[in-house]
Nucleic acid binder design. Structure first.
Length: 605
DNA sequence: ATAGGGTTAG
């Protein structure tokens, strides 16, 4: 304790010493003195000393001094809003700077409501909000996704005539983006003069697109931006680019973005490194991902989370568990999301016991398990054939089972040939969502296996009727262009590059004995029939090569289907895909297909 | 006189 006070004396030169060669009576120099002390504060003790100095010199009446005092109290990492408030309330008539600082401080503490109280007080006192007031308030609305308040503030922005301030505009774009009101973001973006747009503007609008899962539009923005002469590479912009690449399977573009980063930036921050890591892992480049992970100088909880789920995704369950314990050793507290990753790893590797141990550990850590956590365990049990236990487990859950969980169990029932339970679950899935074709497919398979042909017919009919409603689509990247093809769409067949790939896939799959020759499919006479078969076929091909996700609206989305060489004739290595209990692993020039062992991985459904 | 906006997965 003695040591600390000595240190502080060193840190804060005594006022008199500083005065020696100056005129001590000059009030501005005394103010400067206080500011000098304030700016040097490193902790609460220093701050209190500066505060008492201000009181001693009778400078609490100096709005410049109190402004700075409030600013340090409210915004520094060691200060507190309580402290700032106590000072603020001693001011008779706070100015706009002081109000803005208090608002910003509350926003920093994610206390939007309190910030709004100050804002209202400001208005009531007739203090005009300025161009510094709105950015912080809107930022608060952004991360709390408070559209209501955000829109009111937008109105105030017009009333105060601040709508042309670039900071205010960027904040508005961001607020609407975070609230998923992309059209409103675009309106503001489009109303801006091109010269007024800065990199924050571009970065904001691009992340707004990513937030809305409009990855193509995000890349379109990037194309527009990068065609300008004066643009500069910025990490925040490229994070959105990479994120879009991941989702569009634009692996070449992603890799050249990586190259661009290396060429143009001296070092990468942890966010972009983590995004890169995710990009490589999702794209199937496990080795590159591992290399990036090992070389990362700064890792955070998120990086670990991405690495763990990446390992799980590639089927390395035990490795994922190892990284998980490394994460704990390094002092990163896992959150609910990391537990989802690590439980997924357990389910992929069939580590039921480890899964349950982790589940208990998680509850000890005071993390409330969500349906996803339960889902992982159901998955794990289903995978090793413990379908009945999994069913009992579902019944014991504190929440209703959702489609994802039932789907997972349904797949397991089929694989382990528990037809009775399969029918039970299948009917439930259909009840929950009558448009899930996958459940019908499995149900019809189960009926066929039990020779209940009438039911097979009925189920197939449902599938045919639903086919129109389900939009499966897939992406293929050929020479830096990403093609999307949708079920019921044979346009891709007209595109030479894409059809080459499909022919190649076809050949590979035929080689593995999965599907009939494409030409056989094309031999059908009836146009409608041909179209239908083709679409089903293309979807099947894509599914066989892809990872399947169910998007929020339950339509099936197929992403990350494959990676092709630039000449689009040869496949590059790796594709790991899971569908209907078949795993296709691409390693160099061979496919390894596995049919045993359930792959009812909920994260792919 | 002091200040402000933008980045990632599950």
């Amino acid at each position: 304790m003695v040591g600390t006070s000595i240190h502080h004396n060193l840190c804060l030169p005594h006022p008199q010493q500083h005065h020696q060669n100056q005129k001590p009576i000059d009030p501005t120099s005394r103010e400067q003195e206080c500011i000098y002390h304030l700016k040097k504060c490193k902790n609460m003790e220093d701050l209190k000393q500066s505060h008492s100095l201000i009181l001693k010199l009778g400078l609490l009446s100096s709005s410049f001094c109190t402004s700075n005092l409030i600013s340090i109290s409210a915004l520094s990492h060691f200060g507190s809003m309580d402290y700032a408030c106590s000072i603020f309330h001693q001011i008779d008539c706070p100015n706009s700077f002081q109000f803005n600082t208090m608002i910003r401080g509350h926003i920093k503490d994610t206390n939007l409501d309190e910030a709004i109280v100050f804002y209202n007080q400001m208005l009531e006192m007739g203090i005009h909000p300025n161009n510094f007031t709105y950015p912080s308030l809107l930022k608060g609305c952004s991360y709390l996704q408070r559209l209501e308040e955000g829109m009111q503030l937008h109105g105030h922005v017009f009333k105060t005539g601040l709508q042309d301030d670039v900071f205010v505009q960027n904040s508005l774009i961001n607020m609407y983006g975070k609230c998923r009101e992309i059209t409103k973001s675009c309106t503001i973006f489009n109303q801006m003069e091109d010269l007024d747009r800065n990199s924050a503007t571009w970065s904001t609008i691009m992340s707004a697109y990513v937030n809305k899962e409009m990855w193509g539009e995000c890349l379109e923005m990037f194309r527009e931006l990068s065609s300008r002469k004066d643009w500069r590479a910025e990490e925040s912009i490229l994070v959105s680019v990479l994120s879009s690449c991941i989702n569009l399977n634009a692996l070449d573009l992603g890799r050249s973005t990586h190259g661009f980063l290396i060429r143009n930036l001296s070092g990468l921050n942890v966010i972009i490194e983590t995004t890169l890591l995710d990009f490589y892992l999702k794209g199937g480049f496990l080795e590159t991902g591992l290399l990036i992970f090992e070389r990362m100088k700064v890792k955070n909880q998120w990086s670990y989370s991405v690495m763990i789920s990446g390992l799980a995704f590639h089927g390395y369950g035990t490795e994922a568990l190892r990284v998980f314990s490394e994460m704990r050793e390094k002092g990163f507290e896992p959150d609910g999301v990391v537990y989802i990753s690590v439980l997924t790893a357990c389910s992929h590797a069939g580590l039921v016991k480890d899964g349950f141990t982790l589940f208990e550990k998680m509850k000890e850590d005071k993390i409330e398990p969500t349906i996803e956590h339960y889902g992982c365990l159901v998955d794990a049990m289903g995978k090793v054939g413990k379908v009945r236990e999994a069913f009992e487990f579902i019944k014991s859950m504190p929440m209703e089972a959702n489609e994802v969980i039932l789907y997972s169990l349904l797949g397991a029932c089929w694989v382990h040939q528990d037809l009775e339970l399969g029918v039970k679950i299948g009917k439930k899935v259909v009840e929950l969502n009558p448009q899930t074709n996958g459940a019908y497919v499995i149900l019809s398979n189960i009926y066929a296996k039990s020779q209940r042909w009438e039911l097979v017919g009925l189920t197939r009919k449902e599938i045919a009727q639903n086919a129109v409603k389900t939009h499966g689509f897939s992406f293929i990247e050929v020479k830096r262009k990403v093609y999307k093809f949708v079920s019921n769409d044979i346009l891709w067949a007209k595109c030479e590059g894409v059809s080459n790939i499909l022919t190649q896939m076809q050949w590979q799959l035929k080689f593995e004995g999965y599907f009939p020759d494409l030409s056989e499919v094309l031999h059908d006479v009836d146009e409608d029939e041909k179209r239908e078969r083709l679409s089903r076929h293309s979807q099947k091909l894509a599914i066989a090569f892809g990872l399947i996700h169910t998007s929020k609206d339950s339509s099936i989305r197929i992403v990350r289907t494959m990676r092709m060489c630039k000449d689009c004739h040869t496949f590059t290595k790796m594709i790991s895909s899971i569908y209907e209990r078949r795993i296709v692993v691409r390693d160099r020039n061979r496919f390894h297909c596995f049919e045993n062992g359930a792959c009812s991985c909920k994260d792919y459904w």
